[in-house]
Computed example of a mutant assay.
Amino acid sequence: MGLLPRLIDSHCHFDDTRFDQDREQAFQRAREAGVTSQIIAGVKAEWWPRQKQVCRDYPGLYPAYGLHPMFLEDHRPQDIERLVSWIEREQPVAVGECGLDFFIEDPQPEAQQALFEAQLELARHCRLPVIIHARRSVDQVFNALKRFPGLKGVVHSFSGSEQQARRLIDLGFLLSFGGPITYERAKRLRSLIQRLPLESLMLETDAPDQPDSQHRGERNESAYLPTVLQTVVELRNQPAAEIAAITSKNAVQLFNIPPNDES
């Protein structure tokens, strides 16, 4: 196993209840696959305590706390104030997962926008990066980010155009990619992997969601990150060790976490 490139899963939900039955085994499978660190993105306030505990229980897991746009009905007006206190007390590596999702039924764009910008302001105040969810909303996300100059972060599971990608990169943002790039039909995404600078990319699973083509219909997990890596290797025709090293360095620098090692 020592010959495997060391990887960072830059976006995962390892606290999800779908891991309750085999979380220890799933964690060990990830380590054996070379995934030594995971960024655990927050979704809603009632889950933050569970997320905090999981990150304490497993080495190399780092929490980000946020309010996800797809769970608008679960959020309460006081949750932003709760988020402020959680961030001040717990010192997470990022704010998020936050953002905009205009694919869902009844998206309530104004409410989403207000929630998103409140978290952007919080991230700027706390000098933390943001983890952004942008589904059918990349232009609106970009326009919001322009109002917060100097903010850093990542648009996870990026699904926009090359022009949109380069505009975000010019703002100083990273883009992360996971299982969707492993599907041959995802020609636009796969072209992005070939054309964008590796210094602006990270790898992710979004586990337990968005499994790769080898695990279609199954629960996703961080142990499958090498499949994403191998797809990038094939698309870019670059060595796996080089891609793993650069994408992991990007995550270390963005999230200010310890270098990717076995500790």
Rank of each mutant, 00 (worst) to 15 (best):
Leu189Ala: 04
Leu229Glu: 01
Phe255His: 01
Ser161Trp: 12
Pro149Ala: 01
Pro211Val: 07
Pro129Thr: 12
Leu151Asp: 01
Leu61Gln: 14
Gly2Tyr: 15
Gly42Phe: 09
Phe173Val: 06
Ser137Val: 02
Pro69Leu: 00
Gly34Arg: 03
Arg82Thr: 15
Gln53Trp: 14
Gln163Arg: 03
Gln140Glu: 14
Leu115Val: 10
Arg185Glu: 08
Leu145Phe: 13
Pro208Phe: 13
Gly99Leu: 07
Arg89Gly: 14
Arg127Gly: 02
Pro5Ala: 06
Val95Tyr: 01
Glu121Asn: 08
Lys187Gln: 13
Gln194Val: 05
Leu151Phe: 04
Ile169Met: 11
Gln163Thr: 07
Pro49Tyr: 13
Leu83Tyr: 09
Ala245Cys: 03
Ile39Phe: 11
Asp101Cys: 03
His125Lys: 04
Gln210Asn: 11
Pro63Gln: 05
Met70Glu: 07
Ile131Asn: 00
Phe158Gly: 02
Gln230Gly: 01
Ala186Cys: 07
Val93Met: 09
Pro92Met: 12
Ala45Phe: 06
Leu145Tyr: 09
Arg136Gly: 00
Phe148Met: 06
Leu128Glu: 03
Arg89Ala: 15
Gly60Ile: 12
Leu189Gly: 08
Asn260Phe: 03
Ile193Met: 01
Phe255Thr: 02
Leu120Asn: 06
Cys126Ile: 00
Leu192Ala: 11
Glu97Ile: 11
Val95Trp: 02
Arg31Ser: 03
Leu120Val: 12
Asp209Asn: 08
Gln91Phe: 01
Trp47Ser: 14
Pro197Ala: 11
Asp209Gln: 02
Ala94Ile: 09
Ser263Asp: 02
Asp101Met: 02
Phe177Ala: 01
His156Thr: 06
Leu171Asp: 05
Arg147Phe: 15
Ala245Phe: 04
Asp106Ile: 06
Ser176Pro: 11
Thr247Ala: 04
Thr36His: 04
Arg188Pro: 00
Trp86Asn: 05
Pro59Thr: 10
Gly60Ala: 12
Lys249Ala: 12
His215Pro: 08
Thr17Arg: 04
Phe148Arg: 01
